[in-house]
């Protein structure tokens, strides 16, 4: 299992437009990616391709989240997704 942490850069947090950009990117990867708050177990992680799940996560600007995925392409995929989280889409 690959893991990657990221800090939410969008000022509105991970909802609205930033959440839909991220969910669409996660869905396009074709592998299952989960997201959770730092410190929460992998069992509590949510589906990263679901905008509704991202919204319920309620991650705010500056919060740290953990992305997880399995498979040969997982590392590259997580790096790409983390970059989206670390971009301020409201700027």
């Amino acid at each position: 299992m690959s893991e990657r942490t990221a800090t939410i850069a969008s000022r509105v947090g991970l909802h609205a437009r930033p959440a839909s950009i991220f969910a669409e990117a996660a869905a396009e990867l074709g592998i299952e990616v989960s997201i959770s708050r730092q410190g929460e177990s992998a069992q509590e992680a949510l589906d990263a391709s679901s905008m509704l799940a991202l919204m319920s996560l309620g991650a705010e600007h500056g919060d740290v989240v953990v992305l997880r995925a399995d498979g040969p392409d997982a590392d590259d995929a997580l790096t790409a997704l983390a970059r989206i989280l670390e971009t301020d889409h409201d700027a």
Partner: peptide, 18 residues
């Protein structure tokens, strides 16, 4: 446009459909 795009994404959202 923003409201419609976000709503479109919800229609096939894995949380809802699963």
């Amino acid at each position: 446009k923003a409201v419609l795009s976000a709503t479109a994404l919800m229609a096939t959202d894995p949380t809802l459909i699963k």
